[in-house]
Amino acid sequence: MQKLTAGQQQVEVEGATVREVVAALDARYPGFKERVLDGDRIKTEIAVAVDGEVVAAGLRAKVGPQSEVHFLPAISGGAG
């Protein structure tokens, strides 16, 4: 992922939902959307966390003005 952002671990963009955040990131880092989306959904192998909690709502999830959004590998088999 940091290949797209030239090594930056954290970037600030505006957006009230994960969908808007992804769009803003794609505008700044072309290819971002293709990397994380499959059509109009987050790719199954990727999870999105807003303020430390993985959100089930995906692109529809609300994002606050100071929220942190993380793109993580989706964990499979974590329900031991």
């Binding site: 199954t44 192998e45 989706a74 964990i75 499979s76 088999g77 974590g78 329900a79």
Partner: peptide, 10 residues
């Protein structure tokens, strides 16, 4: 295809 069966994608 990829399927999500409640335990992550497979």
């Amino acid at each position: 295809q990829m399927v999500d069966l409640g335990e992550g994608p497979a």
